[in-house]
Computed example of a mutant assay.
Amino acid sequence: MFDHVKFGVSDFAASKAFFLKALEPLGVAVVAEGAPSYGVELSPPTGGVSLCLFQTDEKPAHLHLAFRANNRQQVDEFHRAALEAGGKDHGAPGLRPQYHANYYAAFVIGPDGHNIEVVCNEPEA
Score class of each variant (00 low, 15 high):
residue 23 L to S: 09
residue 59 K to M: 09
residue 66 A to E: 09
residue 35 A to P: 01
residue 105 A to N: 04
residue 12 F to D: 10
residue 118 V to P: 02
residue 59 K to V: 15
residue 94 G to P: 00
residue 107 F to H: 12
residue 110 G to T: 01
residue 52 C to V: 10
residue 74 Q to K: 02
residue 29 A to M: 10
residue 54 F to N: 14
residue 24 E to W: 03
residue 105 A to V: 10
residue 107 F to E: 03
residue 80 R to M: 07
residue 48 G to T: 10
residue 36 P to E: 09
residue 60 P to D: 00
residue 122 E to D: 10
residue 99 Y to F: 15
residue 67 F to H: 02
residue 21 K to Q: 15
residue 28 V to W: 15
residue 73 Q to K: 14
residue 99 Y to I: 04
residue 54 F to G: 06
residue 1 M to A: 14
residue 80 R to F: 10
residue 59 K to H: 04
residue 97 P to G: 05
residue 77 E to G: 02
residue 78 F to G: 06
residue 78 F to Q: 01
residue 102 N to H: 15
residue 67 F to L: 01
residue 96 R to D: 00
residue 90 H to F: 12
residue 57 D to N: 12
residue 68 R to Y: 04
residue 1 M to D: 11
residue 80 R to N: 08
residue 81 A to Y: 05
residue 30 V to Y: 13
residue 89 D to R: 15
residue 50 S to E: 08
residue 113 G to E: 11
residue 51 L to N: 04
residue 10 S to N: 13
residue 27 G to H: 13
residue 46 T to K: 12
residue 48 G to D: 14
residue 60 P to M: 00
residue 104 Y to Q: 00
residue 114 H to I: 00
residue 59 K to Y: 02
residue 44 P to G: 08
residue 53 L to E: 11
residue 85 A to R: 12
residue 109 I to G: 03
residue 44 P to I: 01
residue 91 G to Q: 12
residue 108 V to F: 09
residue 87 G to T: 09
residue 20 L to D: 04
residue 29 A to V: 15
residue 35 A to Q: 09
residue 71 N to Y: 02
residue 117 E to K: 07
residue 63 L to C: 03
residue 3 D to R: 14
residue 84 E to Y: 04
residue 99 Y to M: 03
residue 75 V to C: 04
residue 26 L to W: 06
residue 79 H to K: 07
residue 16 K to M: 05
residue 3 D to E: 10
residue 36 P to G: 07
residue 63 L to A: 06
residue 35 A to C: 00
residue 58 E to L: 14
residue 123 P to S: 03
residue 8 G to N: 03
residue 23 L to K: 13
residue 83 L to P: 03
residue 78 F to T: 01
residue 29 A to S: 15
residue 3 D to K: 14
residue 50 S to C: 11
residue 60 P to R: 01
residue 31 V to D: 10
residue 85 A to H: 13
residue 11 D to K: 14
residue 98 Q to F: 12
residue 50 S to L: 08
residue 37 S to Y: 11
residue 20 L to T: 09
residue 121 N to V: 00
residue 51 L to H: 06
residue 18 F to K: 03
residue 45 P to K: 05
residue 97 P to C: 02
residue 54 F to R: 13
residue 33 E to P: 08
residue 5 V to T: 06
residue 52 C to K: 13
